[in-house]
Design a protein around this nucleic acid. Structure first.
Lengths: 164, 164
DNA sequence: CGGGAATTGTTGAATATTCAATATTTTCCT
DNA sequence: AGGAAAATATTGAATATTCAACAATTCCCG
């Protein structure tokens, strides 16, 4: 590899600055994508820490929460709702079925489909997880501010909506 | 599975509502953790799509971008900066070394450490990636609004700061 | 009706990530 | 000084995710 000369035309204009002077370019920390990743990671980490004593990953809580409306949900709907792609969801649901948290029923109206339901065991677990999650939200709202939290949520919703 | 009776004491108070009346509990879509995950996923997906023609995952762009300051960075610093845990970073850097985008040097002051540098090949790639990323940011700012984008960034920064 | 195309979900192989253990070097403490 | 503890990075095994292929069913259109 030739490490010799500056590969872009900028160096023509940089000769008067002898030492360094590379194109500045926005630091990674100012990119929206990065800020979202960082915030998401941190909040998720905290939530996971709270869920740890129940031994349930955040994704399973999402699944349980969606199913707690009591209605049946197809795998496809679930996958969209919980932000998982299909094969990942299938395998996670397999585990949850083993743990008797949810169960599958074949949709009688469309036999390609599977309809997922939450079990009673799943329901009681969901309640414990919900209160852990709520306590986290309360904790955030506490030292981040109610207004800021509400504003942030609103902006995120709007971003998500626009992004489609 | 016994789906028969409501498992919590609430049902004592719900007897006057004969039909259903389960505890409402916030829908998943109102939780901050979920909104962050969703927004992050979507923005990342879009960025990945743009990077696709370069065949570079977003994480590698982050690494390249951090290293483009020309200074050397230890693996630990890098891992923090690019939101990857150490073993994952090690293996990703292995690939990038194979691709001659970055290289390792042992830190002479502390021989436990490795100092990472970006190669010239890495620099030119970074420039192409930067402009793809900037065009995405521009696209977002365009149909989401400059104010909203700035507000969102500010709120995210503040959340991240508070969360530590 | 019949059959190709589309939809839905799962599987298996390939890939990536994570956890725990390890190796190496430095720091700290007495 | 000298040895235990901490810091840094990597490795290998276990686990998880993804991609592509598949199977089953339904849809659609001629």
């Amino acid at each position: 590899m030739d490490q010799a000369k500056s590969p872009n035309i900028h160096h023509l204009f940089q000769q008067s600055f002898p030492t360094v002077a590379r194109t500045p370019s926005t630091p990674i920390t100012e990119h929206l994508a990065y800020l979202l990743a960082q915030a998401n990671r941190e909040i998720n980490r905290q939530l996971d820490a709270r869920f740890k004593k129940e031994g349930v990953p955040v994704e399973q809580w999402r699944i349980l929460k969606v199913l707690s409306d009591g209605k049946g949900h197809s795998m496809g709907d679930l996958a969209d709702a919980v932000l998982l792609n299909h094969p990942t969801l299938t395998k996670m649901v397999d585990r949850m079925v083993s743990d008797a948290l949810v169960y599958r029923v074949q949709d009688p109206d469309d036999r390609r489909k599977v309809v997922m339901f939450i079990s009673d065991r799943g329901k009681t677990l969901t309640q414990r997880l919900n209160s852990l999650a709520l306590s986290q939200e309360a904790h955030i709202a506490e030292n981040y501010g109610n207004k800021a939290t509400a504003d942030l949520k609103r902006l995120l919703e709007s971003l998500i909506e626009k992004a489609n």
